[in-house]
C-alpha cells in the first residue's frame, strides 16, 4: 500500500539534517525502544514485516511529526495491544 512512509523521490523535506550526527540514541528511552524491538522480534512476537507494517499504519500527519524512535514506540504499542499481550 502506498502509505506515508513511501517517500522516495518526494520533495519538501528540506536539507539533510546532518548536524545531529554522532550518537545512535539521543535519549535513554530511544535505546530502550530499540532493545524492546530486538527482544520481542527475537522471541517471535512479531516479524520485521509486521513491525514495518505497524509503523506504516501510523496516521500520516503523526508519522511525519514523530521522531524515528517515536514511530518505533507507537508501532510496539500497537502490535502488543492488538495481540492482547501488554
Amino acid at each position: 500500500m502506498s502509505r506515508v512512509h513511501d517517500i522516495g523521490g518526494q520533495t519538501g523535506f528540506g536539507p539533510v539534517p546532518m548536524a545531529e550526527d554522532g550518537q545512535p540514541f539521543h535519549a535513554d528511552w530511544e535505546a530502550r525502544v530499540f532493545a524492546l524491538n530486538r527482544v520481542l522480534g527475537g522471541r517471535g512476537v512479531f516479524t520485521t514485516d509486521e513491525f514495518r507494517d505497524a509503523i506504516e499504519r501510523i496516521p500520516a500527519e503523526e508519522y511525519l511529526a514523530a521522531g524515528y524512535y517515536e514511530r518505533w514506540l507507537r508501532a510496539l504499542e500497537t502490535l502488543l495491544a492488538e495481540r492482547g499481550l501488554a
Binding site: 500500500m1 502506498s2 513511501d6 522516495g8 523521490g9 514495518r52 507494517d53 506504516e56
Partner: peptide, 13 residues
C-alpha cells in the same frame, strides 16, 4: 497496482 496491504515495492518505480 497498489495492493491494500504492506508491500516493499516503492511507489516511485
Amino acid at each position: 497496482g497498489d495492493p491494500d496491504h504492506h508491500t516493499r515495492v516503492p511507489r516511485y518505480v
